[in-house]
């Protein structure tokens, strides 16, 4: 475990695996709940947990040791069940990558208990882990310009559900009608870090109709495409990007500081 200072009031705790990061996150939440850590934000990610808004980061840094990381994340809390139709346009591709039938993809996916490792990309988007490593899949070579809300998707070790219509580079295997994010609801996010998730198959297996227009190549210079929408710098894990070759700098769209093109923010319909 490495504890890296971040500015004057934050620490980034780096561990060696996603499981350790989830376990550390759960432990830090427990300590905050019992009152032994005063911190504004606890942000888990792939291999790290960020503690932001600390009053005394130096002291906490000296106190945190590897002994603080439990061996595995707790299997506590309710399981959120997401009804899913395994009808995604990439189901056949995923079946080919896994070397199984489409029906088997659905069976394996629905037979797995997932856990929200972390959230990011958009409010309500969780990066779910649980599939064994040999089921990792690459992102699509060319991201779609528009992925429907509720799409259940795979990339790398993660499963995710797109909370809103957005560009997307992940492999789409199904869809759900469950609303992942509703800011009028309490809590707004159905999935938060640590939430256990199961996908419950409904309806028939097999891909639905695919709109060929949604599969066009992404031109990184166009403002309506992934990576050039004026959002902050991105990273390869983001579900609106394809492989790492697409990690172009954001801001290459020449937007002025006013963002005066009048486009609405991305991540909404």
């Amino acid at each position: 475990m490495r504890v890296l200072p971040v500015g004057d009031s934050a620490l980034l705790v780096e561990v060696s695996s996603g499981d350790e990061a989830q376990a550390l996150h759960a432990e830090l939440l427990r300590r905050r709940a019992e009152g032994s850590i005063a911190v504004r934000e606890i942000v888990p990610a792939a291999r790290t947990v960020l503690l932001d808004g600390l009053t005394d980061p130096v002291r906490l840094a000296s106190e945190l040791t590897s002994a603080d990381v439990p061996t595995a994340p707790p299997r506590a809390g309710e399981v959120v069940e997401l009804p899913v139709r395994y009808d995604g346009p990439d189901l056949a591709d995923v079946a080919a990558l896994w070397g199984v039938t489409e029906r088997e993809v659905a069976r394996i996916h629905a037979g797995t208990e997932f856990r929200v490792a972390f959230c990011g990309f958009a409010p309500g988007f969780g990066y779910l882990t649980g599939l064994p490593p040999h089921y990792d899949v690459p992102r699509r070579a060319t991201p779609r310009t528009s992925v429907p809300a509720g799409s259940v998707a795979l990339a790398g070790p993660y499963t995710g559900v797109y909370p809103h219509v957005s560009p997307g580079g992940w492999q789409l295997i199904g869809s759900t009608d469950t609303v992942l994010w509703d800011h009028a609801r309490v809590p707004a996010a159905l999935l938060s870090p640590g939430t256990r998730v199961r996908f419950v198959p409904v309806g028939t297996y097999g891909p639905g109709p695919v709109d060929a227009n949604d599969r066009g190549p992404v031109d990184a210079d166009r403002p309506d495409k992934a990576g050039t929408d004026g959002r902050g710098p991105m990273d390869a894990d983001r579900p609106d990007t394809a492989g790492t070759d697409r990690r172009g700098p954001v801001g290459a769209d020449g937007r002025s500081p006013v963002g005066a093109d009048g486009r609405g923010p991305v991540g909404r319909t």
Partner: peptide, 10 residues
């Protein structure tokens, strides 16, 4: 590549 990690203001 750096795996995604939390970032702070500033």
């Amino acid at each position: 590549e750096l795996p995604s990690e939390g970032v702070v203001l500033g």
